[in-house]
Structure formats: structure tokens, C-alpha cells
Amino acid sequence: MKEQTLPIIDTDVHHSPDKKEVLAHMPKALAARGLALPGGNGFGNPHGVNRRDATPPGGGEACSDPAYTLEHHFVPNQIRYGILHPAGLLAAGVSADYRYAAALCSAYNDYMLESWLSFDPRYVGAILVAPNWPEAAAREIRRLGGRPEFREIIMTSASESPLGREQYWPIYEAACEMGLPVAVHPGAEGNGISNRPYAGMPSSYFEWHTSLSQNYMGQIASLAIEGVFNQFPELKFVAIEGGIAWLPHLLWRLDKNWKALRELTPWLTEPPSELIRRHVRLTTQPIEEPEKPEHLLQIFDMIHAEETLMFSSDYPHWDGDDPRFVLPRKLDEAARKRIFYDNAAELYGLPPQESTVSEEAANSATPTN
């Protein structure tokens, strides 16, 4: 079996936070309600979402034990850093109770500082915010954005309105002020106050899971057309777990229509594809698997993958990617290094490959704190 030798930054690791501990950080009146989030469209994966082997030996949810996660995922896959995203909490961003949602996000962020982020430096935090109250999200970003434990802002890709609208601009302003990228992750589409996705509500998990990329196309088109990247030239936007093969079509269509309709968006003084190339980053999982592998290499070339693409495993989910097999075999070594490590290191301000954690720490699951 092929051995994974290149160092990796995994940009999407789904840890399972201790829900009771998160609620303990909330005001008592709100915590008494428990975990009250919208969700459930009447369907799900019939086999479950998580890998069974990701369950810690002592029991509990998959990826709920930081020591076992290092042993089971980080060490064997040469992962030097992993960006942590919370399982089960992103739906706060589509809750009609925006005050509860903001309090839950703050509680989660405080919990992370006391738990996973103090356990081992290989764990990298993302500030959870709820876009349903942008002003509160901006305050949370400014409250914690200076902490080195946090290198990203994470929120749901589902939204009441397209994310380019000015109502969300306080989030982007705070992100640029603190020098952090804004990332979105799917899962809450069609729930709570979210837009109804795609052509309408899907009837099965199969349809829902397949069609998620359509929402990403709409969100990135909105960000470009509404002028977010012009207003915030330092903003970086990360589209997590949305695939990649749809992006060339979107870029071509945007550029063609911009040439004919640019009077509608006078603030766009260059092709939208150039803006998106500079500002948007994608993650590998779930990467498309065409019948002819060379077609994926062509997609890589079309999206400038050596600049825009970052490895993500989606651990511990059922369709997660093994780094030994995720990239095309004919991809050159320089591009592999950038996708596995350098692009994320530059985005998140992490050490370059040559000066990452020591070999002892990289090959041991022993916590350093």
C-alpha cells in the first residue's frame, strides 16, 4: 500500500465537542433549553455519518477524544496541523432565535480554548459565528480574533440571503481587521431560516448530498457580483466540502456575462474570475472522481489548484478522503506539496514545512500541554 510521506495540513477535521461542557459556558437561562438547533429534513445517511473506527476505545462519539484523534488520524497520515470544525453546531447560523445562536457560538469558542486547543498545538481553532446576527458575529470575531489558537472563522454555508448582501458585511469587515479567513461549511441547507436549496427541497439524503455544490455556486457568485471582494480586498473566503469541478463553469459564465452586463456592476473593473482566483480557496473533500483520471488534472489546471486548493480529509465522516489516494498520481511533486501543506500554511499563518513541529511531536500522540 502506498505510504503517505508528505507533511499535511488538514483543513477540515470534524471533532465532536462535549455538548454539556459547551452549554455550561452559556447563560443559565439559555443553557436550560439544551441544544436547541434547527435540523432534520426527514432523511439522513442510512449507514450513519461517521466511521466506526473513529470511535474512541473508551466510548463516546467519533472524534470526541483528542488523544485518540491524534493517534488514529494525525500521526499515521503525517498531519502536522488540523483545522477543527464542530460537529452538530453549524446550524446555529440558521436559527430564528439569533440571540440563542450567538450565545451558543461564544460558549463553544470558550469551551474550545479550555479543551482541544489547549491539548496539543497541532489542533487549530476556528471561531464559530452565526451569520443570522452579523453584528454579534463581528463582535465575536473581534473578541477572539487576536488569539493565536484561532486561525479561521467558520459558519454555515446556508443563509437566509446570499452571502454577498451588505447585511453580512460586518462579518467580512471584522475578519479583515483580525486578518482571518472566513470559511463556510455545508449541512444546514433547507433548515431553519435558510434558503430553500437548489430546485427546491430534495427528497432524500442522496439528492441533498449530491446537490450541495449548487449552493456554493450561488454563494460565490453573490460574493463576487455584489462587490464583497472589491470592498474587502484582503478577504479570503474558504469553500469547504463543496467539491471543485463546478468552479470552471461558474468562472466562464461569470466572465462571459460580465463582458455584456458590466454596466450593472460598475464596481467590477476586472473579470470576476480574477477576483475569485485571488480571494476564494477550496478544499479537496469531496473531490470528484471522473472515469478518466486525466480529466481531474484538467480541472486542477482550470482552477489553478496549485494556488487555490487545500487538502481536507473530512475526518471522521463516511466519505472522508485518504491522503494517499486523493490526488491524481500524475500530479507533480511541487503541486502536491502546495495542496497538502503550503497553501494552507500561507492562508492560516502556520509555520512552513521546514519549521513545523518537531519530529518527536509529529510522530507521537502524546499531548504537549
Rank of each mutant, 00 (worst) to 15 (best):
P186G: 03
L296K: 14
V326H: 08
R80E: 09
A221W: 10
A239H: 07
L235C: 03
P162R: 10
R151M: 06
D18N: 14
E359K: 12
R139V: 07
M201P: 03
F325K: 10
A245M: 10
D120I: 09
R139W: 11
H304S: 13
F237D: 01
V49P: 07
V238R: 11
S157Y: 04
D322C: 08
A137G: 01
L264E: 14
P57F: 07
K256M: 06
K236E: 05
N363Q: 09
P351K: 02
H73Y: 15
L70F: 05
A345M: 07
V326Y: 07
E234M: 14
E289F: 01
T269S: 12
P271F: 06
I220G: 00
V182K: 14
T5P: 01
K337V: 02
Y348R: 08
L104C: 02
H85R: 15
L235D: 02
P86S: 12
E294D: 14
L331V: 00
S211K: 06
I141G: 00
A345R: 02
A365M: 03
S213F: 15
E114W: 03
H317A: 05
L264W: 00
S213R: 11
L212K: 13
C63V: 07
A175N: 09
A91D: 12
E354R: 10
E359T: 03
R329W: 00
T11M: 14
I287K: 01
E152M: 12
N363H: 07
Y98G: 07
R122G: 09
V184H: 06
D255R: 02
G58W: 00
R338F: 06
A91E: 11
I299N: 12
N343E: 08
A101Q: 13
V124L: 01
S16Y: 13
A345K: 05
G58C: 12
G349D: 02
D10S: 05
S115D: 13
I8S: 01
N191Y: 13
L309D: 12
E152N: 15
R281L: 14
A130H: 06
D332I: 09
K2H: 13
I83V: 15
